[in-house]
């Protein structure tokens, strides 16, 4: 059974079809790239999986169970962590506390548990391990708003990992980063995958996508136009057309 099963998923915004009958699966322990030109519906897809938008039609099942009607906090407690295209760590909390918020998923559901102090020896030890793994230790006590973008993105990933997820949704992790920063972040994503956590990766940087992903799904105008290994996607004429247009005249097309 696939970890994530998306079947005939559609989403309409006031008549605009953002997603049209999209189906694919994500298996355990793979990095699945989601690519496509701007406006293809990639982030919309993430927002539906994580419960922010309701779907217009179709089904999303996680570990064989439908999650379509769940609220975002229920989806995240089930084991789906995410980051945002425009980073949103909690700006006025330090890095450690940012991560603690996510560890709270163990305590929030029960009123009595949630009255206990959030600085507990056992949880703090786990935070240390996570900080070490993500290379965030030097920033532990710094407010998230004062950190550079690359570190903020790493905080977001660490925070999502604190949910103890089986699936991570990463929305353009390399966006806005310099080459070295982006390379380090990709190393982290690889480590995450090697621990058996599946990753859905929205990415515009083709080199990153081709390097990192086991499989790739291509969206264009809300529809899935291709799916397969990086090699087959690279040579797929429909994909090339979606990215570059039909009659390629580079002088005119570049912006």
């Amino acid at each position: 059974m696939a970890l994530l099963n998306i079947d005939g998923l559609s989403k309409e915004f006031d008549g605009l079809r953002a997603l049209d009958q999209v189906s694919f699966t994500a298996e355990k322990g793979e990095i699945l790239g989601i690519i496509g030109p701007n406006g293809a519906g990639k982030t919309t897809l993430f927002n539906i999986i994580s419960g922010i938008y309701p779907a217009s039609d179709g089904e999303v099942a996680f570990q064989g169970k439908s999650i379509l009607r769940m609220k975002p906090h229920q989806v995240s407690r089930l084991g789906i962590g995410r980051t945002f295209q425009i980073v949103r760590p909690f700006p006025n909390l330090n890095v450690e506390t940012n991560i603690l918020v996510a560890y709270g998923h163990r305590f929030y559901p029960d009123l009595w548990n949630s009255t206990g102090p959030f600085r507990r020896a056992d949880t703090l030890k786990e935070v240390q391990i996570l900080l070490e793994k993500t290379g965030l230790q030097p920033y532990q006590k710094q407010l998230a708003k004062n950190l550079p973008l690359g570190i903020k993105k790493r905080v977001e990933i660490a925070r999502a990992l604190a949910l103890e997820p089986r699936l991570l949704l990463l929305d353009e992790p390399s966006g806005g980063l310099r080459f070295e920063e982006s390379a380090r972040l990709m190393g982290l994503i690889r480590t995450v995958r090697d621990q058996g956590i599946s990753v859905l990766l929205i990415e515009h940087n083709m080199q990153v996508v081709m390097d990192l992903c086991n499989r790739i799904v291509v969206l264009d105008h809300g529809s899935k136009i291709a799916e397969g290994s990086p090699e087959t996607i690279r040579s797929n004429p429909q994909v090339i057309e979606a990215y570059l247009g039909k009659s390629v005249r580079l002088e005119d097309e570049e912006d």
């Binding site: 975002p72 995240s76 945002f84 918020v101 709270g104």
Partner: peptide, 28 residues
């Protein structure tokens, strides 16, 4: 006491960023 509890932490996260908070398991 509340400020040091998980409830207080959940409140802080909601104050900071509601959407990020619910993505982190906080029942907003």
């Amino acid at each position: 006491r509340l400020g040091r509890s998980w409830i207080g932490l959940a409140w802080s996260s909601i104050r900071e960023d509601e959407q990020a908070a619910e993505a982190m398991g906080v029942d907003v």
